[in-house]
Amino acid sequence: MSEPVTAATSAGATGSIYDIGYRRYEGTRLGRGHAARSLFVHSLRSSYGIGRGGRAKIAPIILGVMALIPAVGIVAALTLFAQFGAGREFDEQVPIRYDTYAGTISTIVILFCAAQAPELFGRDQRHGVLALYFARALRRSDYALARIGGFIAALLILELLPQVILFLGRVLLTSDIPEAVADDLPSVGPVLAQSALAAGLLGGLSMVVSAFTPRRAYAVAGIIALFTIPNVVAGIVVGLGSSTIGTWLTLVSPTSILDGTNAFLFDTRLDSDFFFVDLPGIAFVGAALVGIGGSIAITLRRFARIAT
């Protein structure tokens, strides 16, 4: 009978025996919250391939760099024009601004979703890791929320980092920094809100798809289809002359919803040939929020029932 010797009771001879053998863990045990936070961080890191093999980093690094290129390019050009005293003119002409940035990189964000979302949920299901998570202090809902949250946080970084660079470039390259900050400050709210809606909606929906399709290839195809087909269908329906149905169909197209919220948040008008121009802006925000809430609810339900 080997009694476990605790640090407090192991004095002298017995202690030395246990030093070379198995040692009990007497330290603190943090509960569910710590477990969920750790999984959140793990999901965020895994989304960028950190802590996985070298090959897992290729896609996120390429897409991350592509998302940065417009911002870096604008800042570089701005530096050049500012040297010739034409900074302000350039600034007024350039098409890539806070209110267009999300739209500019939306394709990259969608590709990032298609490439990385299946890694998080699909991997755990394909390789049976789910059983190990559920056999720990974590609850099934904790697992689902931590994974979704980590992925949405990864997307948020993808959306916001270029705009932070844009902001720093614009501010630091002018002679009057306080004025430049004051100029850009009103955009901060809309930028944050639009990035949050985009990350939440695209991230949430791609996590739903990957939660139900452990096979990576199918999940990738499913995510891309979900983000492109409704938009195309809506366009066709409108083209056939049924603009009412087409208008409402745009509210099931994630990319159209985000175009709409962008226009609403930055108070710009959608291009006049956009067929859904008539809808009130708040309808798009509502649709985005419903989409985010719905995808979280569906994912929670999925993992509450999945067999391990």
Binding site: Y25, T28, R29, R32, R55, R136, A137, L138
Partner: peptide, 18 residues
């Protein structure tokens, strides 16, 4: 695609260890 060290220590975190 994870190493044994990374995976086991990740699981230790999920078990509540600092």
């Amino acid at each position: 695609d994870a190493s044994a060290t990374d995976f086991v220590s990740h699981m230790a975190l999920i078990s509540g260890l600092p």
